[in-house]
Amino acid sequence: MITAATIKIKDDEFVELKDIIYKNAAISFADSKKYLLENRLSKRLQELNFTSFKDYIYYLKYDAKKREEMEVLLNQVTINETYFLRERAQMDHMIKTTIPALITAGKRNIRIWSAACSSGEEPYSLAMLLNEAGLFAKAGIEILATDINTEVLDFAQKGLYRTISFRGVPPTIQDKYFRKDGFSFQLDSAIMSKVKFFQGNLFNPMLSAKVGRLDIIFCRNVLIYFDIPAKQKVIDLFHKSLNTPGALYLGHSETLNKISDSFKMENFGGGIIYRK
């Protein structure tokens, strides 16, 4: 926050607010991340005329619109920057190895889940690469994309991106799939139609039923925000949702070491795949 003054959060307010966030989204904030809440929420507090985080906590607890405000809060704290073709080696591995193996094994319908898709760059990247490899013609491929944050999902469904989302994207891909529109770039509607978005909290017991059985899951750079019990819960959900054989791709800095031994880890050179 550069133009709006930052409201400082006191220790007891921080502890209570992080407990509220944890109970609603299982996201853990280490003490060193206090500034992050201050930065992301100060503007919202000022909009509500509040001068302290205590006021805001009471608003979350006692206002008639507390459920709506909880959504606003979670939208603010779950914004994660991403970009097209991020950590591409795993996507290429899926295209070149995992999906061909599934097709060879006789699979005709393949379901992929981008389990915390943020503003949509990941599932759309998968759709573009699948299209480039001609795989949509070889199998019925369905891409599901979920996120807890309703704001980023609205953004994703518009398919309108700023330059910041194209870090490291080859111009050939950008030119082929996007049309410049003022400051933004509009994604090709055929690619957009390949991805089905819906809101999903990874800790909602109903989510498993909503996504159904899957063959491949991408959940990258998300587990780092959870504590160990929460990570175990999410991994358990993934394991139950995956068919056998199934593949799970996590972020480069994420590991299942000491979290779960239900997957078989395989290093493919450019990254790690967890196989069921």
Partner: peptide
């Protein structure tokens, strides 16, 4: 880093150590 922090977490050391950048 996150991996090391996770080990601290499992050993209940995140509040035992003062962790800074």
């Amino acid at each position: 880093c996150d991996n090391v922090y996770q080990v601290f977490e499992m050993a209940n050391l995140t509040s035992y150590f003062t962790i800074r950048e």
